[in-house]
Design a binder for these strands. Structure first.
Lengths: 203, 203
DNA sequence: ATATGGTTTAACCATTCGGTTAACAAATGT
DNA sequence: ACATTTGTTAACCGAATGGTTAAACCATAT
């Protein structure tokens, strides 16, 4: 069947491209290397995705579409605030362990190319902070947590969950830990980070 | 004077290289672009720094030597723990505003090339966590703060201070803020982050 | 003034890289 | 059976890139 075969190669190209782009970035990636990893001729890359740029964008959008639901689980899920923080830290860390290069890739390319954000905004599931903001302000009004801007709290949550992966080599060196020990620390963070945050804001 | 002239160009090359490398990374940087920015012939780059790789390493070590004292101020300064946290968040954020690309550059290249850490470790002022660890454990023993691993606390401090800069484009999009508003939020963090951390750990 | 040393440049080189072409292969429709 | 469309490849191309060379420049020492 033509369709199956062509769909297969198309997906295999995307998978190969994903690996290479996420490890080496747009500039460091080579079309030949992607072709090799996908076990096809280089010209096929251009047959399916006209240019390196378009192939990259396909990978990037795909990566972000995996990340978005994770972020949405903090922003637009309607569970209790503390519970939500606990769920997020736990599930996000599990997520990144499964996709180690992904958040760094997204953030890095977004830094090199801030106008990419515009393209992401168009996507349906792009997370917005509004629900979270209301929830935080309600919790403050009800005397459940200390006054804090929702944006600041959000940044704190994301920072403590995302940075340990992005800064892994640096943090390993600074804390003087090997891989095994660092992984143990990260695993422990699945619960510790939530506790830390809740302790910081609860009255 | 010969020496002055040659030292001048050598430094101007380093400055030009710093800008280009920090904005575009090792792979994205072009020797010609660096030469243009330094207003010299491309061959001069090779005259002073034999190869792109060596020029890059010079820039990288230089960048890290600026960053290290900042980190040391959390790790190896002997002021009171809470005071130290307050000083660090305040001074680190000021530092990054002066060198916006620097931390991202260091972290990014370290990710692409984790064995670079070995070269950094050799440098004299490379920060270690030992003093900080003792201080945290003492504070726990004295009932000043809740039990927490020094490494976890350290990672939290660094994360909340570093990530808002590294993740800026993403965080701006997620919190739906423009440059002006985001800068205001970051400025506010100079004091807010310390308060947040201290609230999380104090008894 | 002239030789000497480091400094700077224009021109050049080999290789790499993204992309194209033209021909071939395989599937599909009639 | 045969024509048409779709998928795949080897070979090729031009531009860009890191690096080299040989000559010119210029300050200083003799």
């Amino acid at each position: 069947m033509t369709k199956e075969k062509s769909e297969n190669t198309e997906i295999e190209i995307l998978n190969a491209a994903k690996e290479i782009f996420q490890q080496k970035g747009m500039d460091g990636a080579r079309m030949q290397e992607i072709a090799d990893k996908a076990k096809i001729n280089k010209a096929l890359l251009h047959y399916y995705y006209r240019s390196k740029q378009l192939l990259f964008e396909a990978v990037f959008k795909n990566a972000f579409s995996l990340l978005a639901p994770q972020l949405n689980s903090v922003l637009n899920d309607d569970s209790d605030l503390f519970e939500k923080i606990r769920n997020f830290t736990n599930s996000y860390i599990s997520f990144v362990i499964k996709h180690p290069y992904l958040p760094n890739f997204v953030i890095q390319e977004l830094n090199k190319n801030p106008e990419f954000v515009l393209k992401l905004r168009e996507q349906k599931n792009f997370p917005t902070i509004d629900t979270f903001k209301t929830q935080v302000n309600d919790a403050i009004k009800n005397g459940v947590i200390k006054p804090i801007e929702a944006e600041q709290l959000f940044i704190n949550i994301i920072s403590m969950n995302v940075f340990p992966f992005i800064g892994k080599p640096l943090l390993m060196a600074l804390t003087n830990t090997d891989k095994k020990e660092y992984d143990r620390i990260v695993q422990k963070r699945k619960t510790e980070v939530a506790t830390f945050i809740i302790d910081a804001i609860k009255i």
